[in-house]
Amino acid sequence: MKTTIIRTAAILAMGTATAAMANVPIVGGAPMPATNNIVENAVQADNLTTLVAAVQAADLVDVLASEGPFTVFAPVNDAFAALPEGTVDTLLQPENKDMLTKILTSHVVAEDLSAETIIARTKHSTDGFYHFNAVSGDALSAQVKGGNVYIYDESGNAAMVTTANVDQANGVVHVINGVLLPK
């Protein structure tokens, strides 16, 4: 009887843990618990390794692990790979830290912006775009097309949000398929 109760309790606990994990978004094959900060989650994602290396090279780890709140538009590895050959290697060199920091901070907003908030703000705009600024000071715009959210940099280049609303302890991450470049 005692063994049955223990087994039943273990099965119930596993079921509860599985149900809780079902609500945790997966990015790059790794669960992204909302109790972790942006950095703690990003280092777990196989598809964000280039972004993590860039954040480390720019000495932005402490900033993105701080209280926030932040919204991060996180480019996947393929987005960095689509840049002209040698760009990432050049940016990761110590002498290019200022340029790398400018690019990375153009992906960060000092506000917790859910996809629903971004979509609502596009609907209430006169031109169909939600215009806002990144931490870098660069202008960003969001637009909804075909049910997808696109983020535009100052040059008009668009990156589509592929995974939205990855809540973090210090904000939210939206995974994107492009790199936003400041002018």
Rank of each mutant, 00 (worst) to 15 (best):
Q93F: 04
Q93N: 08
Q93T: 11
P94Q: 05
P94V: 04
P94K: 05
P94W: 06
E95K: 15
E95F: 14
E95D: 15
N96F: 13
N96T: 12
K97E: 13
K97L: 07
K97P: 02
L100K: 11
L100Y: 09
L100H: 10
L100G: 09
L100P: 05
T101V: 04
T101Q: 12
T101K: 12
K102S: 15
K102N: 15
I103H: 14
I103T: 13
L104M: 12
T105W: 01
T105S: 06
S106W: 09
H107C: 10
V108L: 05
V108I: 10
V109K: 05
V109C: 01
V109N: 02
V109F: 07
A110W: 09
A110L: 12
A110K: 08
E111W: 04
E111M: 02
E111D: 13
D112I: 03
D112M: 14
D112W: 11
L113N: 03
L113C: 03
S114V: 04
S114P: 10
S114F: 03
S114E: 06
S114Y: 08
S114T: 12
A115M: 00
E116F: 01
E116D: 13
T117M: 04
T117R: 01
T117V: 06
T117D: 03
I118H: 00
I118W: 01
I118C: 01
I119E: 07
A120F: 08
A120N: 14
A120S: 14
R121W: 00
R121M: 07
R121T: 03
R121V: 00
R121H: 03
T122I: 06
T122K: 09
T122R: 10
K123E: 10
H124L: 05
H124E: 12
S125K: 01
S125T: 02
S125M: 03
S125A: 10
S125F: 03
S125E: 02
